[in-house]
Nucleic acid binder design. Structure first.
Length: 259
DNA sequence: CTCAGATCCTGTGCGC
DNA sequence: TGCGCACAGGATCTGA
């Protein structure tokens, strides 16, 4: 916060989408950073002009360096930053699989950006997530797992946490959404919140690539109850965990515990 | 309305 | 040892 972006170097511009270089320079170059926050998995960096919007995708990360030249392969963007004392540092955007994304928004109304305006609720900032889930599941014949992974319903729940939350709530991922009772919605809502809180407290889930901002892996993987445990015994009942594709994603659950 | 399948991408881990 | 292939995942799009 308060630091000034002096320059941005782009080493390639094809992430998931083309990086809007000129627009990002317009928003950030010569400007000081007034606010940094996130909505869903999008990081927003605010200046007087507008916002840079950054999604890290699967394998993206932002790290500080004293050197402006890329230190690792797959460093695609480098922000040159000056603090109040005049000290220069460099924020490197690195993303091997280039599933990440950079976008921009002019003016203060970031909520209207096309990537952000259709997003559902923040699960940890919604007091009645149970009601929200109940209303969102009525008259829906989709399977419940695809509903909680859909960012139009709520954000932040990817494949790993969807599997874990459904196990915690004892709900079968293939169950049709509108067949969930009110109490099942309540159980699912609190399971989602608990799962996310526990994962955040553990520093996230590292399967392979993920690193926290200090460069360490996240330790939630050791707490996973079902994800990645196909054919291993359910930790609650001992029956074998099932792996089955749902919505194009491998889905892990216990046939016996999850109804 | 819903879903399967494809798409974007690279590192990894497997079988042969 | 080395090659080819399947797989992982967030978000979105197409066609059925």
């Amino acid at each position: 916060l308060g630091r000034k972006i002096q320059h941005i170097d782009f080493y390639r511009n094809d992430l998931r989408d083309r990086i809007p270089k000129d627009e990002l320079l317009n928003v950030l170059k010569g400007q000081s950073i007034s606010h940094v926050f996130r909505r869903s998995k999008y990081i927003l960096i605010q200046s007087r002009i507008g916002f840079a919007i950054i999604h890290l995708g699967m394998t993206g990360n932002l790290t500080y360096h004293t050197c402006g030249t890329p230190q690792r392969p797959h460093t695609h963007v480098v922000f040159k930053v000056k603090d109040a004392t005049g000290k220069i540092s460099y924020l490197h955007y690195t993303d091997p699989r280039r599933f990440g994304r950079m976008a921009f928004h002019l003016g203060p109304d970031w909520q209207n950006h096309p990537l952000l305006k259709t997003l559902g609720v923040e699960p940890l900032e919604t007091s009645r997530l149970d009601d929200h889930l109940y209303h969102h599941t009525r008259l829906k014949s989709r399977k419940i797992k695809t509903i909680i992974m859909d960012n139009h319903t709520l954000v932040g729940v990817g494949n790993i946490y969807a599997c874990e939350a459904l196990f915690k709530a004892s709900i079968n991922p293939f169950k049709l959404a509108d067949s969930l009772s009110r109490s099942q919605c309540a159980r699912l809502a609190s399971s989602i919140q608990e799962t996310l809180k526990q994962a955040i407290a553990a520093g996230g889930t590292t399967i392979k690539d993920f690193r926290t901002t200090d460069g360490n892996p996240g330790y939630f993987a050791i707490s996973l109850q079902v994800y990645g445990r196909a054919n291993q015994p359910c930790l609650r009942c001992g029956h074998a965990i099932t792996a089955q594709v749902l919505g194009g994603r491998n889905t892990f659950f216990c046939h016996f515990c999850q109804k």
